[in-house]
Nucleic acid binder design. Structure first.
Lengths: 191, 191
DNA sequence: CCGGAAAAATAGCAGTGCTAGGATCGGCCC
DNA sequence: GGGCCGATCCTAGCACTGCTATTTTTCCGG
């Protein structure tokens, strides 16, 4: 029936509405401000409808995180391919990564700090997630040398992740951010 | 009066009791299991007494974290000074850092992931905290070269922090841990 | 138009951190 | 020794959380 397809369309629309509301609320006031009640109010439905779309709050955060992976992948690719020489690719990608984390802290948290339910380095890792890591793989390829590409990518990623998280937690001197980023890339590149 | 000093002794004792209970509970079942009610039950007092010792749950976590800094400092120093040649010091310290995070995840979380109320790279940073960082400073000194020591220490610390957090969140391949650690140290040491 | 299924809302549960109020205990003064 | 009074502690409760059982409403098909 036609009504059935319309129903499904409306459901999908509301699904997007929930994810969008969660993301906007998180980016505006942090994830601790994202409660199921506020979310329900935001989409102008009652609380329980959230649970007909998602298994719980974690699942909503995971949905937001997935958006983040797609965007991060795009930004990493843009940064990497904008390089004129291969050696420049990594530096640009790293800067893009740090900028992403700085500009969308709530999104970054959903992707890497919370929502640990997402399967990562396993077989059933979602595609968007694989793609983001694949970008990193390509970025480090020029500096790999004899080292395993994947291991190197994981290690460099860890360095970036540590930099942005410790920085945002107020653990590192703000004004030295650029220098640390440069130092990490430079030494990891054996330059 | 003598009673006054006894009172203070008992208060101090209960203070330690709270911190110990919080730490043990966190290490056994994670911080999400550490609720003010369970904590109160553990020390066999009512809930509100916690608030006569600490301003809130965050303050209790911060107290646990401070213990962690003292212990981490000791382990880093032991690892560093156990090295026979200066180049070995950093690798040992890094391994000690990773081992600390792996063996006391809840303690590590209190120190670096939660409890962001602790002032870090500022003037009023507690001594135990400074000492831990000072250990890292010494560990990286042999590999500093022309780079700023403090910046290098911050960067390497970020690398370690990223490794242990992403690893524990299931974001990295467990079996490659050693290789990543080695790769980080090797490249950051320009070897 | 009406019956019934699907959809949505109300109301509630068990838990959280934290606090205002009242009870109880202990040390000091007369 | 007896009574007072302040410190100490507990009971009860607030406002909130994520989540769900139950009831109410809506809306479609015959």
């Amino acid at each position: 029936m036609a009504t059935q397809t319309r129903r499904e369309r409306e459901r999908a629309e509301r699904h997007r509405l929930i994810v969008r509301a969660a993301r906007e609320l998180a980016e505006a006031e942090g994830w601790e401000a994202v409660t199921t009640r506020r979310l329900a109010a935001e989409i102008e439905y009652s609380q329980p409808v959230l649970y007909s779309h998602f298994s719980g709050k974690d699942a909503i955060m995971a949905a937001v995180a997935m958006e983040g992976f797609a965007e991060l992948t795009a930004e990493l690719r843009a940064a990497r391919t904008s390089a004129t020489v291969p050696e420049q690719a990594l530096a640009r990608a790293a800067a893009a990564y740090a900028a992403f984390a700085e500009q969308r802290p709530a999104l970054y948290d959903a992707m890497f700090t919370h929502a640990s339910a997402l399967p990562f380095a396993t077989a059933e890792t979602p595609d968007d997630l694989r793609a983001a890591f694949a970008e990193l793989l390509e970025a480090v390829r020029p500096i790999a040398g004899d080292d395993d590409l994947e291991t190197l990518a994981e290690t460099l990623w860890s360095g970036l992740h540590g930099l942005v998280t410790l920085m945002r937690a107020g653990r590192l001197r703000e004004e030295e951010h650029e220098r640390r980023l440069d130092l990490l890339i430079r030494r990891m590149s054996r330059r």
